[in-house]
C-alpha cells in the first residue's frame, strides 16, 4: 500500500470513529475543511506513526504543520526511509 493510500485510509477511519463527515478528499482540500479537530489530528499522527514508523512533525522542528491534505501526505512521503 502506498504512503498516500495509508494516509487517506487512516483519515477515513478516524472520520468514521469521530463521526466527522468528510468532504471529497483532494490534495487542495485544506485540513481545516476536513472537519478534524486537534484531537482527531493527534490520533491520525499517532496511528500513522505506528503504521509507518515515522512522525514527520516531531522528527524535524522546522517542518511547518501542513495546510492542505496534499502537504500532509507529502510530509509522510518525504521522510527518508
Amino acid at each position: 500500500m502506498s504512503v498516500r493510500s495509508k494516509v487517506i485510509e487512516a483519515i477515513q477511519q478516524i472520520a468514521k470513529e469521530q463521526h466527522v463527515t468528510l468532504p471529497a478528499i483532494s490534495d487542495d482540500l485544506s485540513l481545516h475543511e476536513t472537519g478534524f479537530d486537534s484531537l482527531a489530528f493527534a490520533i491520525l499522527v499517532a496511528r500513522l506513526e505506528d503504521e509507518t514508523g515515522v512522525d514527520p512533525f516531531t522528527i524535524s522542528e522546522d517542518v511547518a504543520f501542513p495546510a492542505t491534505v496534499g502537504d500532509f501526505v507529502r510530509a509522510y512521503e518525504n521522510v527518508p526511509a
Binding site: S38, A42, V45, A46, F57, T58, F65
Partner: peptide, 12 residues
C-alpha cells in the same frame, strides 16, 4: 499518555 506534536499528549 503518549507525546503528541499536536495536542501535547494523547491516550494510548
Amino acid at each position: 499518555s503518549r507525546k503528541s506534536p499536536i495536542t501535547g499528549g494523547i491516550v494510548v
